[in-house]
């Protein structure tokens, strides 16, 4: 997915900037200057590095990041799908826009134990409505009722904190649109 990004071109200074902004830009008139203060870098350099990281694709977008958790939904389930390789894209594109599907990831399988490659997080006001919505997805799947899928409701939450790519003891939390985005569980 990121084969075109030259990871070696990311410098330590870039990493300092990324680390400093991972919890979000401060809500002050000159946020880049404030970020710069925390890492001994001037405002222009912070801005330039962000610009370059955006051009190289390390930063996919800069902007307001909204919570993708639908309001008023109490129940959720992670539903995993075992689809033929060539069907994954069409199914992912079909279900990810549905408003009760908040996460839709393709993941590597771990055969033979775990053949599932598409992961969807389904929300609903209760368990029953989640299951009904899962049926909507089943009907959109290529094999309909023959599709191999599993519904995994969560029963207990043991830990939840923001992603921490950098090992420094920072307390900022982040959302990376990757594996750890949003709650409930990815």
């Amino acid at each position: 997915m990121n084969s075109q990004i030259d990871l070696d071109a990311i410098t330590d200074a870039d990493r300092r900037v990324l680390e400093a902004i991972q919890g979000g830009l401060p809500l002050v008139p000159h946020p880049y200057a404030e970020i710069g203060l925390s890492i001994q870098m001037d405002e222009e350099e912070v801005i330039e590095r962000i610009r370059t990281l955006q051009q190289s694709g390390v930063i996919r977008r800069m902007g307001i990041i909204v919570h993708h958790r639908p309001l008023g939904y109490q129940a959720n389930a992670m539903v995993v799908w075992n689809l033929p390789e060539e069907q994954i894209e069409a199914f992912g594109n079909a279900v990810s826009p549905l408003d009760f599907v908040t996460l839709c990831y393709q993941r590597r399988a771990d055969l033979p134990r775990w053949p599932y490659t598409l992961y969807t997080m389904i929300h609903g006001k209760d368990r029953e409505s989640v299951l009904q919505r899962v049926q909507t997805l089943v009907e959109l799947s290529p094999l309909k009722q023959q599709t191999d899928y599993k519904v995994l409701f969560s029963s207990r939450r043991f830990k939840q904190q923001g992603a921490r790519y950098f090992n420094q003891q920072r307390t900022t939390t982040t959302q990376n649109d990757g594996a750890t985005q949003h709650h409930p569980a990815p």
């Binding site: 990121n2 990493r15 977008r61 990041i65």
Partner: peptide, 12 residues
């Protein structure tokens, strides 16, 4: 959630 960057997974 925040105002900030979405980082391409598996880069940094």
């Amino acid at each position: 959630s925040r105002v900030g960057a979405v980082i391409q997974p598996h880069t940094i």
